[in-house]
């Protein structure tokens, strides 16, 4: 950039942002990826919301509104965990990572690029889902600063934790083709046992609830219910309260676990490359 000698290596943050711009360009240019990434959780929300309909749970809250709050958690997991898991496995498979490894691009810039990609796609996903939920199921957006704050930190911790887990699970997939199968199983299973599709969560067998409580989706869904539903609905949670302190604790713990898993398992090369 400058005429000063000797030329210095470009700094990391602008490179990371440039990678983010490139990732977004690639993402929005592959139309099937865009359509299906955004459509899957939204279509499920519309279908299941219509099936449950206006059946009133309590206090004027409908089943579809309870579902919508939980589906936002699932939407986050879809654009972070599932998308990143398959995307990075793809980068490993098609030579992206190998090519980057042969350049002076720092690894941090690659991950900043993925963070930018995930941040933009996840926000877009949530906007789409909230719009549908508000329009079709009369979900009301939070009206206090406190609820918005809760929304913000549940969203942030959920995105970071699930993204890190997505990066980690990408190393488990031997090829890009197996990656979508590898990520879909935990994604779908966790939705079923975490009180996303089945509400209230206490209607599930205790063993499943206990299992779900070890993973982030249950806590994200619970956090979002506390934001979008009246506080009286807390009575339907396993503890009878929103347990926001525990939501923060478990999601925070998964951020740490995810980071450790990433640092210990990330591979630049394909599994079969020896």
């Amino acid at each position: 950039m400058t005429a000063l000698a000797p030329p210095r290596l470009p700094t990391i943050l602008p490179l990371g942002l440039a990678r983010g711009a490139l990732e977004l360009r690639r993402f929005f240019r592959s139309r099937e990826t865009v359509v299906f990434t955004f459509a899957l959780p939204t279509v499920l929300l519309v279908l299941l919301g219509s099936v449950f309909g206006d059946h009133a749970e309590a206090q004027g809250v409908t089943s579809s509104q309870v579902l919508a709050a939980g589906m936002i958690a699932a939407g986050i997991m879809s654009t972070t965990f599932v998308s990143l898991g398959t995307d990075i496995a793809g980068d490993r498979d098609d030579g992206t990572l190998k090519r980057l490894r042969g350049t002076p691009m720092p690894a941090a810039a690659y991950f900043i690029g993925k963070v930018v990609l995930v941040a933009v796609t996840t926000v877009a996903q949530i906007v789409v889902m909230l719009t549908v939920a508000v329009a079709m199921f009369d979900l009301s957006l939070p009206d206090t600063a406190g609820d918005w704050l809760t929304f913000a930190w549940v969203f942030a911790l959920g995105v970071v934790g699930c993204s890190l887990l997505g990066i980690a699970i990408s190393s488990l997939a031997r090829t890009a083709r197996s990656a979508s199968a590898v990520t879909q199983l935990p994604y779908l299973a966790l939705q079923f046992i975490s009180g996303v599709f089945v509400n209230p969560i206490t209607a599930l067998p205790t063993g499943l609830v206990v299992t779900a409580s070890f993973f982030p989706v249950k806590w994200m869904a619970q956090g979002f219910r506390s934001v979008f539903l009246p506080d009286s609905m807390a009575a339907y949670e396993p503890a009878g309260t929103w347990e926001l302190d525990r939501v923060a604790l478990v999601l925070g713990a998964w951020c740490v676990i995810g980071l450790v898993l990433c640092l210990t398992t990330f591979r630049w090369r394909r599994g079969q490359d020896g």
Binding site: R25, R26, R29, S30, D91, D94, G95, T96, K98, R99, G102, T103
Partner: peptide
């Protein structure tokens, strides 16, 4: 570095 058989950057 020009390695063998990369299929990235398609878009």
């Amino acid at each position: 570095v020009v390695t063998q058989s990369a299929t990235d950057l398609l878009e």
